[in-house]
Write a protein that binds this DNA or RNA. Sequence first.
DNA 1: CGAGCCTTTGAGTTTCCTCAACCTGAGTGG
DNA 2: CCACTCAGGTTGAGGAAACTCAAAGGCTCG
Lengths: 223, 223
Amino acid sequence: MGQLCLPVGMSQQDLAKMDTLVQERVRVHKGETLYRMGEPLNAVYAIRFGTLKTHVTMEDGRTQITGFHLPGEVIGLDGLSEMQHASDATALEDAEVCVVRYDDLQSLSSILPSLQGQFLRLMSKEISQDQVMLITLGSMRAEERLAAFLVNMSERLSARGYSSTEFVLRMSREEIGSYLGLKLETVSRLFSRFAEAGLIQIRQRHVKLVDMAGIKQVYSRSC
Amino acid sequence: MGQLCLPVGMSQQDLAKMDTLVQERVRVHKGETLYRMGEPLNAVYAIRFGTLKTHVTMEDGRTQITGFHLPGEVIGLDGLSEMQHASDATALEDAEVCVVRYDDLQSLSSILPSLQGQFLRLMSKEISQDQVMLITLGSMRAEERLAAFLVNMSERLSARGYSSTEFVLRMSREEIGSYLGLKLETVSRLFSRFAEAGLIQIRQRHVKLVDMAGIKQVYSRSC
DNA sequence: CGAGCCTTTGAGTTTCCTCAACCTGAGTGG
DNA sequence: CCACTCAGGTTGAGGAAACTCAAAGGCTCG
């Protein structure tokens, strides 16, 4: 379970101690929220199974999806600085998470130095990933963004033991669009165009990456 | 100096111990880089004075600025997960940074628990800020992005004791554009338009925010 | 089996980009 | 001291990319 709930790189004993951290689990049904922006942060969450999205809503109602999160990933870290959640987390399908209480985290990390390091690394990784998204949103064109998205999903899924070439998107076109800074129609059109070009096969949310090299070319070639 | 180099919230003794961390300082002249992407990470850096930019260059040569960094901010945190820098850091003007060696950080944080917390909070804050940029790039229009940028700069500068309404931009139009996902001409046009609308005065890189409420309206009104 | 949501596709519009010319100010050498 | 140079900035015209609006088709779930 340690494997599922926090990344590897810890000793067996450490893992045992870790398990005291994550006794509590919570199920989140599709469409339900795990936490909401502004709520006091009591814990962070490691996903056991299922897919979640994190998103922020602006005053005027526009919303932006800040991430899609797969099993093994930890969410809620963005709220640690203010001790309140900085985004909403909603399940895209039925999911289960391990609850890592902040108090336990505090007390345990003094007797378990590697834990703090683990968290530093986790957070640093999230910063890097966010910065990759900044590049994507800031300097890529629509088709490059979508290609990058597909490759990213592929890599993350394969790292978790799923097929890297064939998978089910758990999110709608609109959610993909929000994540990529595009409108849902644009996403739909691009999927169609990719399929027409023989790069992918797509039927509803089921995707098959046919020509991975071709997909990567979409965003690695300069214009 | 503790004030300048790491955020407050620590006891006097802690600050004293802290100072052992930051004995070393480095000057970076305008245009020079403090670190480059891919270099092994030996330290993170707290800015004492000057402005730096962090940026990433893609294989095809396109570059994206991921942040502008003012005195008091800590940079290099994005490299902690892989222990190598995830971006370049370049001085926009002559600057000086405190060097916080990773080894010292490790050894000191075991005897100084509040330090780890400090860093967790720093990193969490960076995640939140990156996510604000994701919203900006993903769901705002050009003029909204620029207005948000001006307000952000204003707030950060005033938090550091500078004027909130009148300041000098240390970066070029092109750099602002890269940061905001716009072309330099678009940035220039928008500055002109803002000035024409009486929201700001701008002369080269010297900006004066005349109608702060009006500027905020630019990005808070739904269309 | 029907309702509602998601998706696809088309047509027209808007926004921002590209290309190009010109301007400005700071630094340089005659 | 002044003309020159060059990087950075402004402004205009035209075009491309993505958005908006609209309509129709397909899934899913009760």
